[in-house]
Design a binder for these strands. Structure first.
Lengths: 247, 247
DNA sequence: CAGTGGTCTAGACCACTCC
DNA sequence: GAGTGGTCTAGACCACTGC
């Protein structure tokens, strides 16, 4: 089996090795987002594996959210990086179920390099370096702030964000991470709890101090499984609404 | 391919047909919970399909939460019906991460047949029959009530629960549903929000009226995909804690 | 119609568990 | 070593899409 120069671990199953190699090519941007990959038979030939093995490798990429299969048409690089993600969990608009609802506008209030608190550094596994990028945003609907986001990133792939004009940050950060820093978010872990707003935070949201708030802590992971973003989002508890499917 | 008498839809893929047939045998209790199924090769022979097809059918059962595979040992019927499920989402004990933590005790306050509110009837898809079983429970840790559960069930498979002594209900309902009514819960959909406690509910939880509460609405589905239980759980918002993995 | 992904087969060999 | 699930192959045919 021919593999890329990036040492494939020979102890791993072949479909894992092929999955890794294929993932790297996708992330490297060999195909445009939304574009079709070569047919499975062709890919199997390229990697020198049987069709079934190739299909298993592709299945892993689909699970990871990198690819999308369409019967009879082809296999495509996922474009949208889907989401308003977090945003769908609050019922801020009357048409809450509307999939075409526009992405809420983001306003950046702060962006700088900081010393990380130990708990944040631990979540980002920054090791000895306790420094990172800090971002404070509000999200607005109809020009009214409804969410407050504190975001921490490791310096390593993200330092260049410090040199980007705030106006050039999009409303959605994940596509922006991909464009600017080559980081693809494939998985996230969220932790939901409940608290009250500190005075300063309440001010940014136009709410009273000590108002009840939903608090979401999210750690987002890259293709390689490394934690690359930690964020704490706060919003009006009474408008919070989260759906989960179990098993 | 030999199938059970229950008409397999010939238009479905073979592995789906085998999955359906196998699921029925598991639910019917042909193997004890925790017991090993025959080897894959033997099952493939029984159903007259290739090993790969049999493995795909088994994989579906694993996804559905019915089976568990252990490399080198065998394929087993899932016993525990896992969980304290809901309960792990509140941080009521100091050792919150302890997997051995005992299941909180349940106390039944009400159990009767009722006329269903339209929204509950809609969730349970009871059709013209708007009647169901209603259950009101509190869950206790160290003899202190910490959760309040309102549970609605369709009459069809559950009516016999009305004749069961309250003391014979276990702390976990899902294994009880299986034993008493042959209903296996395989999937649930939860909806999390925040609210405040009504006076009567607050009283049952030993909290002040209007206290902030986490509210979880859960619809649970049987093996066949029908909604068979709707419950609303309330608990102290300050002790609420929910973890979700996305994608 | 050609080209794609989806299903299925019959066999081989590997990795793990338990005796 | 015997028995299990996990990986892999090389081929066949089916189902869907689009020209």
């Amino acid at each position: 089996m021919r593999m890329s120069a990036n040492d494939p671990d020979q102890r791993l199953p072949r479909y894992e090795q092929v999955h890794d190699a294929l993932s790297r090519r996708i992330v490297a941007g060999e195909w445009e987002a939304g574009a079709a990959l070569p047919a499975e038979t062709e890919l199997a030939r390229q990697y020198g594996v049987a069709l079934g093995t190739m299909r298993q490798a592709i299945a892993r990429c689909v699970e990871a959210g990198l690819l999308e299969r369409v019967h009879g048409k082809g296999t495509f690089v996922r474009s949208g990086m889907q989401n308003a993600l977090m945003f769908r969990f609050f019922r801020f608009r009357s048409n809450a179920g509307d999939p075409d609802a526009s992405v809420p506008r983001a306003v950046i209030h702060d962006l700088r390099e900081v010393a990380l608190e130990p708990d944040v550094a631990a979540r980002l596994r920054t090791g000895r370096s306790m420094r990172g990028i800090f971002l404070l945003r509000t999200r607005l609907i109809d020009d009214k702030p409804v969410l407050l986001e504190r975001i921490w990133l490791p310096c390593k792939p993200f330092r260049r964000l410090l040199n980007v004009e705030r106006g050039r940050f999009g409303d959605l950060l994940y596509p922006f991470y991909r464009e600017q820093c080559g980081v693809v978010i494939t998985r996230a872990s969220e932790e939901i709890s409940f608290g009250t707003l500190r005075k300063a935070d309440a001010g940014l949201l136009g709410m009273a101090a000590e108002s009840p708030a939903a608090v979401i802590r999210r750690t987002a992971f890259s293709l390689t499984g490394e934690p690359v973003e930690f964020r704490i989002t706060q919003g009006d508890a009474m408008r919070f609404h989260y759906n989960v499917d179990i098993r």
